[in-house]
């Protein structure tokens, strides 16, 4: 697979992604798979018109991404894929994204969410989606920036259950 990083991040494409991961991985293409953003002109412009450290950005819906997967559209380049939530990642996997390991880079606090890490908070739906991703054979590791120690979400979720 051409994907050098598949990442869950509720800030979508932002500094950690463009600067830190960009420098680490030298991607040739970043794809934000987010239906809300893809359907909003100014949000698309925010990413396509600002400098993502020189890396071209595409913003597509989940459906469009799945079609691209089938057609092999994304395979030509070193590509970073960003989704907003574990639920979105699960949808991509169900539609054919084959990924051995996915990165959880930021799921920030909201009311009713429990802390796994200072940058990873989950509600029941997040937990259900993450478990299904892991059960399906994709390793989930939390790591906000490349310099951070990767943490296994399976272990963190287990610890949360035992609390």
């Amino acid at each position: 697979m051409p994907f050098v990083l598949v990442r869950v991040d509720d800030r979508l494409i932002h500094g950690q992604v463009t600067v830190a991961w960009g420098a680490w991985l030298s991607p040739e293409h970043m794809i934000l798979v987010n239906n809300e953003t893809a359907c909003c002109d100014w949000k698309c412009a925010l990413y396509t018109e600002t400098d993502s450290m020189g890396v071209p950005v595409s913003i597509v819906t989940r459906e469009c991404f799945a079609e691209g997967l089938k057609a092999g559209t994304w395979e030509a380049e070193r590509t970073v894929v960003i989704v907003e939530s574990p639920r979105d990642l699960l949808a991509l996997i169900r539609s054919g994204l084959d990924v051995a390991e996915a990165n959880v880079g930021g799921m920030h606090y909201a009311e009713g969410k429990r802390e796994l890490l200072p940058y990873v908070f989950v509600d029941d739906d997040d937990v259900a989606a993450m478990k299904e991703i892991i059960t399906g054979g994709t390793r989930l590791t939390a790591r906000d920036v490349p310099q951070a120690q990767p943490q296994d979400l399976a272990v963190l979720l287990q610890a949360l259950e035992e609390k």
Binding site: R11, L12, H14, G15, T18, W42, K43, T50, D51
Partner: peptide, 16 residues
């Protein structure tokens, strides 16, 4: 502070 960052994102949202 940063074009394309989360802070810019939110400011643009408010402008929009």
């Amino acid at each position: 502070d940063m074009p394309g960052g989360s802070c810019h994102h939110v400011c643009q949202e408010i402008v929009a």
